[in-house]
């Protein structure tokens, strides 16, 4: 089950404080980057739930995000439904789609699961690319942000929109923690460690996987809705498998299965991307090398590495205080 420790709380407080401070002080370009980080963070949270806590490495989360974005754009611009209602509907549609994908793929494992999700993701990508209603290669424009003028907030201002995304991320993080601590989340970690045993206990394994995939899809859909509102324009490129691959890279860079780590990863990834792109056009070479180095180091990403070091330090302190007698039993909850 997912637990917070002091380090995780500390990192969350630091991240939140940093985001708020940045949102208040930064200029236009800084705010755009912050919003990009926040939306990516929502997407990678969705991916970490399935990959880190359910062992379901999905390569269709980029496509799910795209489905959310397109559903929102179509409902709000073409069908004439109000913006808040379209947001809810888009999240629901993406969740339902993800549930179906999860249910179909639940039987596959390992590389086959990766390939199956890839197939569904690319299927959505090709469909959006081909069908005229989605605007094809040209994408869709004229997407509007929610109107919060009733409470005196103008979301067309990039500062308020960044704060709006931060609020959404906070909500999503809370929802993710609640989901992982619920009965469903506990069943999921049981399924990840031993599906056979869970089946013997009378659990319908595919239902658990599909339900979690649905929840994760709703979160990815929300990321898509916010991404559409952020750039006010969407194109099929959003659904391409490389987006899913990048999301997976962010989760790994941050720390798989830590929930806090992917947030750190998202911030590091976007900042690195902008910094490196300013220096050289070979940004992929840098991120590729870093990815290889991180995986070869066998650390669980940036946050996982810090957590392991921190856990080791705690152990050593405990071992010193108890003269090494019971220290073996008190290992860190990494």
């Amino acid at each position: 089950m997912f637990r917070h420790n002091t380090l995780r709380y500390g990192a969350l407080v630091l991240l939140a404080a940093g985001a708020v401070a940045h949102a208040v002080t930064a200029g236009y370009f800084g705010l755009e980057i912050l919003t990009e980080i926040l939306i990516l963070a929502i997407l990678v949270l969705a991916l970490d739930i399935v990959a880190g806590f359910g062992g379901m490495v999905s390569l269709c989360h980029g496509a799910l995000m795209g489905v959310g974005a397109y559903a929102f754009a179509l409902l709000s611009t073409k069908a004439g439904i109000s913006v808040p209602l379209s947001m809810v509907a888009a999240v629901a549609i993406t969740g339902a789609g993800a549930w179906v994908v999860g249910a179909v793929c639940a039987r596959s494992h390992g590389i086959y699961f990766i390939m199956a999700t890839l197939a569904f993701g690319q299927m959505a990508y090709s469909y959006v690319f081909e069908a005229p209603v989605f605007g094809g290669d040209d994408g869709l424009g004229g997407i509007s942000r929610p109107d919060l003028s009733l409470v005196g907030i103008d979301l067309d201002d990039s500062r308020s929109f960044a704060l709006f995304c931060l609020a959404a991320l906070t909500l999503v993080y809370g929802a993710a923690v609640i989901t992982l601590r619920s009965g469903l989340g506990r069943s999921l970690s049981g399924v990840m460690h031993n599906a056979q045993r869970m089946r013997a206990l009378g659990l319908t394994v595919w239902r658990v996987k599909a339900d979690i995939f649905g929840v994760s899809g709703m979160i990815a859909g929300l990321a898509g809705v916010l991404a559409a509102q952020h750039s006010m324009y969407i194109s099929p490129g959003l659904l391409n498998w490389t987006v899913s691959g990048e999301a997976l890279v962010v989760v790994i860079l941050g720390g798989l299965g830590t929930l806090v780590g992917p947030l750190v990863g998202a911030a590091a990834f976007v900042v690195l991307k902008h910094e490196v792109s300013a220096l050289t056009s070979y940004w992929h070479l840098v991120v590729g090398s870093i990815l290889i180095a991180v995986v070869l180091s066998r650390a669980n990403g940036i946050f996982g590495w810090v957590e392991a070091r921190w856990g080791a330090k705690l152990d050593r302190r405990l071992a010193d205080s108890t003269r090494g007698t019971e220290a073996q039993e008190v290992t860190g909850d990494a």
């Binding site: 992929h284 590729g288 090398s289 290889i292």
Partner: peptide, 16 residues
Amino acid sequence: VLVTFGLIFALLDLTR
């Protein structure tokens, strides 16, 4: 998957 995914990125830019 991840290491070879990184390799794709690296080789892509090396050819460039």
